[in-house]
Design a protein around this nucleic acid. Structure first.
Lengths: 231, 231
DNA sequence: CGAACTTTTGACCCCATTCAAAGTAGGTGG
DNA sequence: CCACCTACTTTGAATGGGGTCAAAAGTTCG
């Protein structure tokens, strides 16, 4: 999602973060913890989530390789989003203290980080709008459009055929649906000839109809390059 | 919501913004516009929203006096959230260019702004979680807890008795409910003895039960002061 | 090869939407 | 100042989308 530039990423990787491998389902940060590290995804998927006291989770953001899942914690260490590995994931954990020093020593980098957080907000707003306003099929369609484009932007596949090995229960936590209904929704999209395969790999048969269904307009992602011919 | 400090507000007001009065229902920024100003609420309420092509709106944030509704646009002028006056509102419109200059000339202020956006993200995450995970009554309860505390924090009333003159249709756009169901939900809360008056002025009869119902934990608001004894 | 977890499908139920209509402000113009 | 119009509030009845419960079939991994 409009990832950090080369400079920022390089600076970030020079801070002595440690590489970590976790398997699907592992909680990287528990709800309510204070921020100690910042998490940069290298391979796999990380989900940001909020949790209620009955244990129910809402995934509020999905992070692809090259995303930083909790960059805003640098500005407010008291606020650390809960994080969960959605698939087997490789990531870099950068100490928060080093991040703070970096931003304090370089206003340019601080501004880049802030700009990154601004996109985060825009994506989150869309996510919330999607949850609040649309029916299951439309929510699913919107989600797949967004993820498809972001995967393409990250150079990890293309919008019509990409790997997304998250389970249907996890999809449900992202979309505010039960696992059962996620399954039915995907089936409906397949039956309509909009989706081909679903599962670890998603195949989109009719991008235009998928966008129309999800009422998807990619401007909020601020992707550059040829991706703009989306809808 | 963990508003800007005295210094930042003072700096912001010294930028030659213009005071504007609008009545309820006026759109201050249309969906898709680019950012030209930043909007500081002085009196009244501003709603940030996303809109779908069928005209349906989702309010993603409600801004009280002393809030800046679209501060993140300073970091990313291409991203301007749509804004709507929820009540008759007085606000200050500060030119975006002046804001950019300010942040570039003062890294300390830039950092304060970034930190403000971080809280914005945390609130938005809760908002999304609320929309995705909870039933109508619980959503309403959570919303009233949050607004009550924020109004108290802004010094505009207290959590047990505050003015909130937004209409039920607007409440519906915030909570992802139909106006009719908002009405029924409020009635249910009154019938349970949790709420007293509803309408322009809300009276909470049982704060503890309201918090329990909404599964409300105020830490994400980062309010300081005695507000912490909330739940 | 078995255990645990997904995916899939069916039947039933309930919360929220939709449709409809009456009553109640609030605001404007005559 | 009152009449009128518009928008909000309130309530009822019927519908439907998604949830819940349950169970079978397919995967994955130890």
């Amino acid at each position: 999602m409009s990832a950090l530039g080369q400079d920022e990423q390089a600076a970030l990787l020079g801070l002595g973060g440690s590489i970590v491998q976790v398997r699907a389902g592992v909680d990287l940060v528990q709800p309510g913890e204070k921020a100690v590290h910042v998490h940069l995804v290298v391979e796999g998927l990380i989900g940001r989530f909020a949790q209620f006291s009955d244990g129910k989770r809402q995934i509020t953001a999905v992070h692809l390789p090259s995303d930083v899942a909790d960059l805003y914690s640098v500005a407010r260490p008291a606020l650390a989003p809960a994080l969960q590995a959605l698939t087997t994931t490789t990531l870099v954990r950068v100490p928060l203290a080093a991040m703070s020093n970096l931003t304090r020593s370089s206003p340019a980098i601080a501004e880049a980080f802030w700009a990154y957080c601004a996109v985060d907000i825009a994506v989150l707003e869309r996510w919330a709008a999607n949850l609040g306003c649309r029916a299951a099929t439309q929510r699913m369609a919107h989600f797949l459009c967004e993820i498809g484009l972001r995967i393409e932007d990250a150079g990890r596949g293309n919008r019509l055929d990409f790997e997304l090995s998250i389970t249907q229960p996890q999809l449900g936590e992202a979309l505010g649906l039960t696992p059962v209904h996620v399954n039915r929704t995907l089936k409906a999209l397949r039956d309509q000839g909009i989706l081909g395969a679903t599962g670890k790999r998603y195949r989109v048969l009719d991008w235009k109809r998928l966008c129309a269904l999800g009422d998807f307009d990619p401007v909020y992602l601020l992707l550059d390059g040829p991706t703009r011919q989306a809808a």
